[in-house]
């Protein structure tokens, strides 16, 4: 019972703050309210016993990505990006939005219809850091190493495309 109350509490906080992100006129408030959304999602993950994902959610999303958003807002200023009445979206975009919404609704309906595997709560030990670490470094070792190679490409790419000094090709 307390689990259910907590679930509705965090879920409603997540929904309300997410709505505030969309409807807020002030970009800084929108970003800060997105932080709240991320935190309440992390709480929901904890309730699913996915402790590791909850931690990563706070570290990566709330910690890194949203701080990056705030930095961009700080550097660019918020004057130019305030929504004005002239910047209304055209009819084509509205149609596109309706299309997306209907696709997602259909998808949700499909997911909720096939609940055969969703009834049980996941076991308590599945989402611990220890178990995930074990699984990454034994069962999914190859995948883990491949990800490190992909990150290496990212580093090479950034250095190469942003490095000005040797811009000697055509």
């Amino acid at each position: 019972m307390p689990e259910t109350i907590l679930f509705y509490l965090f879920a409603s906080v997540a929904l309300i703050s997410a709505l505030y992100v969309i409807f807020s006129k002030e970009p800084t408030y929108a970003v800060l309210s997105l932080v709240v959304t991320m935190f309440s999602l992390a709480a929901l993950y904890v309730m699913l016993h996915a402790y590791f994902i909850a931690m990563i959610q706070i570290l990566i999303y709330a910690g890194a990505i949203l701080v990056l958003f705030l930095f961009i807002l700080m550097l660019l200023g918020t004057e130019g990006i305030l929504p004005s009445d002239q910047a209304r979206l055209g009819r084509g975009w509205c149609f596109f939005g309706v299309l997306l919404v209907s696709i997602f609704t259909a998808e949700l309906a499909m997911v909720f219809q096939s609940t055969q595997n969703l009834k049980d709560w996941p076991s308590e030990i599945l989402g611990t850091v220890e178990n995930i670490g074990r699984s990454i470094f034994s069962e999914h070792l190859l995948a883990f190493e491949l990800i490190s190679l992909i990150l290496l490409i990212g580093i090479i790419g950034v250095v190469n495309l942003a490095h000005k000094k040797e811009a000697d090709n055509a």
Binding site: A143, L146, I147, L149, I150, I153, G154, I156, G157, N160, L161
Partner: peptide, 13 residues
């Protein structure tokens, strides 16, 4: 999936 990503990430650069 990851090996396809390895190919495409290199090709992005």
């Amino acid at each position: 999936f990851l090996s396809i990503e390895l190919i495409t990430f290199s090709l992005y650069v």
